[in-house]
Each structure stands twice: as C-alpha cells, then as structure tokens.
C-alpha cells in the first residue's frame, strides 16, 4: 500500500513542498497582523429597518383623508408597535389608498417606498379584512404593477356602502410566490415568502 514513488511524481511533491513554505510564510505574516484589537465600533446603523407604515385613504369626490399609521421605533426591541387611525370612513364613498414605508430610526428619516417599487417583482402588499367591512382591492394604475404585470399593491381601493366595522391587516411580503393561486387577486394564502411588515388597524365606516 505504502511505497516509494517515481522521480516524476517526486518532483511534483517537491513543488507542493515549496507551496508549503510559502504558506508557512503567509502564516507568519498573518500572526503579525492579528495581535491588535479593534477600538469601539459605532452602533449599527439599521438602514434596512422599516419602522413606520402609513396608509392614506383619499375619498373620491371630496371629503376627509383617513390616515392609518403603524409605528414601531425600536424594531425587534420589546416595545410594542403603536397604531393610530385618524378617523372613521364615510358611507358610500370610494377611497383610494396609498401605502408608504419609512425608517424613522435613522436621521434623516428614510422613505423605503421607492425601493419597494423598484423591486416590485419581489414584493407584494396584501389587504385582509375582517368583520363587516367591504373588501379592499388593488388600484389599477400601471404604477401598481411590476415588470411582469403582477400587482405590487401600494395602491388600494376601498369602496364603502353602509355602516360597517372590522379590522384591516396590511402585510408586506418579500419574495412571495406571485404566480401562486389567487395571489394576483390579493389572496395571501398561497403567497408564502417572508413578512417584512404586518400591521392591523380597527376601522369603522359610519
């Protein structure tokens, strides 16, 4: 099993040995560079964080805008998010909703919405409702669709009829399966991907 080898092969091995010497040198250099410790580093700048979701619903034909804000300034910290709803929706109105995402933990405040629009094919916003509220649908403006013609969902349409109440859950999914069954229609069931933002609001129509 163990045997002497031919001259040819031996030269090959000698070459390997030379490499070894080089690595030994490299190793020495490595040691020399490794002994200094680094000074205190600044706190991590969490640029990617989303702290605030704002949905502004503008009634067509005049009326008061309704603004929904979901804010969590400490990110993964223990402080719970806060929810504000500026008022009640009016009956028999069509509201055009526009969602924006911000990072308010950095100075200056960063608007992340354009980034989501640019990467529209990797994102989708879903609107789920409970109670007697009517369904939220996607706005049909071309800016609400990605390069493949699939909805992004930054714009929504909410048409009210009679008095109603319930909750609205706005979810931003990263890398959803946009071809999943009913996903293009706004159904989150088969979307998968992972949730970047999830905010729930109590709404009333009166």
């Amino acid at each position: 099993m163990k045997t002497k080898i031919s001259n040819n092969q031996f030269n090959l091995k000698m070459k390997k040995m030379k490499n070894l010497k080089i690595t030994t040198l490299a190793l020495g250099a490595l040691l020399a560079f490794s002994s200094c410790s680094k000074d205190d580093t600044p706190p991590v700048n969490e640029e990617e964080l989303i702290t605030t979701v704002t949905a502004v619903f503008t009634p067509q034909g005049g009326g008061t805008n309704i603004t929904l804000i979901y804010k969590d300034l400490d990110g993964e910290g223990p402080t719970a998010a806060t929810t504000t709803v500026s008022g009640n929706f009016m009956q028999n109105k069509t509201y055009i909703g526009a969602v924006t995402f911000k990072n308010e933990a950095v100075n200056p405040i960063e608007d992340i919405t354009p980034e989501i629009l640019t990467e529209g094919d990797e994102h989708q916003i879903f609107y789920q409702k409970t109670g007697t509220l009517n369904t939220f649908t996607y706005g049909m403006a071309s800016s609400n669709f990605d390069v493949n013609g699939k909805p992004i969902g930054l714009q929504s349409v909410f048409t009210t009829t009679g008095a109603a109440s319930g909750t609205l859950k706005i979810t931003l999914r990263h890398l959803p399966n946009k071809s999943g069954a009913n996903v293009a229609a706004g159904d989150i069931t088969n979307a998968f991907g992972n949730t970047d933002v999830e905010g729930t609001f109590n709404l009333t129509v009166q």
Partner: peptide, 19 residues
C-alpha cells in the same frame, strides 16, 4: 481570544465584540 462583529452588516449583531 478576540471576536469582532462587523457593524457594516446594517443588522445588530447577534454576538458582540469581546476579548
């Protein structure tokens, strides 16, 4: 031993710097 958690990740490191 020295551990260095690079802050350039943009994510708060799971493990801090330590000696």
């Amino acid at each position: 031993q020295n551990n260095f958690a690079n802050p350039a990740t943009g994510i708060r490191p799971l493990i801090p710097n330590f000696d």
